[in-house]
């Protein structure tokens, strides 16, 4: 076969291949509609109502960015080992990115850093350490400041010589811990006596403990830092008219809590824009997957009392448009 013929056959076969490629490629596939699998490991068993808002934000972002979101709970007794195992399992199952409310533990941190080298990790709300060379994306409100401002609001309502009870539980998670510390700092700075109470995780015993706490005559102000505890405190107060002078403060954003706030059962709450947190977590994970620059976002928060619930900004914070 002459050289010329060879060339001709080569060109023809190149054409053939190109033709096959053209006709079998769906034009839409050129755009690369890849679905990302993202796993969200959250604390607690079923997402509590407050978690729902974060989840809703995540779902909106999932729809917008073509993500399939899986929510995985850390189990009732959130322990560091449990979380580590969950992490490994999710990575094994082929997650493209991990969102996690991580327990503030070195082991978990190490695991997250290991995973972050391979797939994007986003810490939602709770952070596992604040090293300088932190490469893991962290989406959270300024929990310490929220704690401080809440503390300020509480101070305003304190009578002379009155003490404050701080319900300390769930502080394995940094957001709870920081808010706690924020309030405590303000209390300490003004020399307000503080009593720390551990509520434990069992619902029944907790209800009992709260009731006992409130029955104590010297109890005037109680501060809790997670929604289930806030609701339990509110319920206990509502059911017993004797408790009506006790003031309840805290952080948490459920409709029940807002109801209590409105009807004067709870006095002040600190709320961060959980919807944003959820949305941004997914969005930033996707952006990192696509290799895009991630901009810093400020998560809004607000300290709200009964009179401020329906202010425009607060409305939007407390009652997310879920679409």
């Amino acid at each position: 076969m002459t050289l010329k013929k060879k060339i001709i056959i080569l060109i023809l076969s190149a054409c053939g291949v190109a033709g096959i490629v053209i006709f079998s490629t769906n034009p839409q596939q050129i755009k690369g509609e890849e679905v990302y699998q993202i796993s969200y490991i959250h604390r607690g068993e079923i997402p509590e109502e407050s978690q729902q808002v974060i989840l809703q934000g995540m779902e909106q972002a999932s729809n917008a960015f073509n993500v399939e979101l899986t929510a995985v709970n850390s189990g009732n007794r959130a322990d560091a080992n449990g979380q580590k195992m969950l992490l490994e399992k999710e990575v094994e199952n082929g997650a493209d990115a991990i969102l996690i409310e991580g327990i503030d533990d070195d082991g978990v941190r190490a695991e997250l850093e290991k995973i972050n080298a391979v797939i994007p990790v986003v810490e939602v709300n709770s952070r596992t350490g604040d090293k300088e060379d932190n490469k893991i994306i962290q989406i959270h409100a300024d929990d310490y400041v929220i704690g401080q401002e809440l503390g300020e609001a509480i101070l305003k309502r304190l009578g002379p010589e009155e003490s404050v009870i701080l319900i300390k539980s769930g502080t394995e998670y940094s957001d709870v811990a920081e808010r706690y510390l924020g309030v405590k700092e303000i209390m300490d700075a003004s020399a307000v006596p503080v009593e720390e109470v551990d509520a434990g995780t069992d619902e029944v015993s907790r209800t009992l403990m709260f009731t006992n706490l409130m029955a104590n005559q010297s109890t005037r102000h109680i501060v809790a830092f997670s929604s289930p505890e806030m609701e339990a405190l509110g319920k206990a107060k509502q059911e017993n008219p004797d408790f009506k002078d006790i003031s309840i403060y805290g952080t948490g954003n459920t409709n029940q809590i807002i109801n209590y706030l409105e009807s004067g059962i709870i006095q002040v709450i600190g709320v961060s824009n959980d919807y944003s947190i959820g949305y941004l977590s997914v969005r930033n994970a996707v952006m990192k997957l696509n290799g895009e620059e991630i901009e810093k976002n400020q998560i809004k928060y607000s300290i709200i009392d009964a009179s401020q619930i329906y202010k425009k900004e607060n409305q939007r914070l407390l009652f997310p448009f879920v679409q």
Binding site: I11, A18, I22, P27, K31
Partner: peptide, 24 residues
């Protein structure tokens, strides 16, 4: 654009084929 690209792909393919056939 996608369709144009597709079209041009086809055009190039056609041209290549024509060149080959012509040469032959």
């Amino acid at each position: 654009t996608q369709n144009s690209q597709f079209l041009w792909f086809v055009a190039i393919f056609a041209i290549l084929t024509l060149i080959a056939v012509n040469a032959f």
